[in-house]
Design a protein around this nucleic acid. Structure first.
Lengths: 203, 203
DNA sequence: AAGAGCATGTAAGCTGTTACATGATTAT
DNA sequence: ATAATCATGTAACAGCTTACATGCTCTT
């Protein structure tokens, strides 16, 4: 019976719930392979060649992650014997894999994600329209917009309260963060409009 | 004699050079303690209470990191016996610690940092003016500005080239990234001006 | 008495980074 | 021949997250 079960701090982390669950890299791989079947090498090239942000093209990250997903039945690999070149294992997403991906994409947008893991949200959004359709993308954007408004407001409040007492460079650094979120907010609002127009066209 | 010494991929990572070197959390702690001597608990509160971004207030991260810094002689801890409450160990930065921090802050701004680790750069900037003075902060900002211009241009080029062929949500996600960098660029330019004005006042 | 806040830590387990291993083909 | 590219992996190691352990004080 642990008596210290309720602490002041609630660790600042997304519930990763390590172990059997799929992590960020796993979902990214799932999403990319869903778009187009690919080998580990293909994926490494995507990471090194496109502005895909923070992801490393290191084999020590990608191959074990792929092996884990294949072991869990979310990906199915087929070895392609090709003329001459070393054989490559092309991975396809399975039905289970696709439904796991969809479940991830369907998760509601939390304020905490907006504050600490905005890049992850943008990654989810990048797959969203493709996998779940435009309606889901619009819903996502509206949730994102609402949380961004809240967060920008609280950053500004913090700056007004603590800013004058902070060293110049510290305050400027914080302002840069606030401006970044404001830019995201403007983008989200514009993106909502873009999607609404898309819908009208169809209607 | 490894014959595969030269590979196509240069892993997308900052040279962390694990082992004895100080990592990001280490520098962050060094920087905060330089501003004001603090206990592990104080630092945890800072992480959980202020918009300090992606850092976790988990004790399993902070206490070992502090112990490592203390072991390396970069921090010096003194246990404060306080009336009643459990004793707290207040950490101060040592001369060696301060010079390590300065060396980190003095590193040139690389394009790769701008692309993948902008938050780290902003963290460095937050300490920069305080520790190295306004001139260093201005130099930093001008380097940052130059790299941001390059990166924004290359993102736009990528979008013009590949954008039309991408799924809508994917393109939008990329545009959001580009807008974020543009916002940073505007901020950097403004911050340079703010610092120039500061200098004129003194002169 | 219970619970929250103060305060410091440890242990297990997963992930990612670095570096190494392997080996075939194609361009210089 | 030599180097680069295609292609897949493993091993060592360090870091972070989660969860647990401990124990004091102050408020309700």
């Amino acid at each position: 019976m642990p008596h210290g079960a309720c602490q002041t701090f609630r660790y600042n982390t997304l519930r990763t719930m390590q172990g059997r669950e799929i992590n960020l890299l796993g979902y990214l791989l799932l999403g990319l392979i869903q778009q187009k079947a690919a080998s580990g090498y293909d994926l490494r090239k995507i990471f090194s060649g496109t502005p895909m942000g923070r992801f490393s093209d290191s084999p020590g990250a990608i191959y074990p992650a792929l092996a884990k997903l294949e072991g869990a039945g979310l990906l199915a690999g087929r070895v392609e014997a090709r003329r001459g070149l070393r054989q490559r294992k092309v991975l396809r997403i399975t039905r289970t894999g696709l439904s796991e991906l969809k479940a991830w994409l369907k998760r509601p947008v939390e304020l905490d994600d907006v504050v600490r893991k905005l890049d992850v949200l943008m990654l989810r959004f990048a797959f969203l329209g493709n996998v779940l359709g435009d309606d889901a993308a619009r819903r996502f954007l509206r949730q994102l917009e609402a949380h961004l408004k809240t967060h920008v407001a609280s950053l500004k409040e913090f700056l007004e309260g603590h800013g004058p007492a902070m060293p110049v460079s510290g305050r400027l650094a914080l302002e840069s963060g606030a401006m970044g979120y404001e830019a995201q907010l403007r983008w989200a609002s514009r993106a909502v409009v873009a999607y609404e127009r898309l819908k009208e066209k169809v209607t």
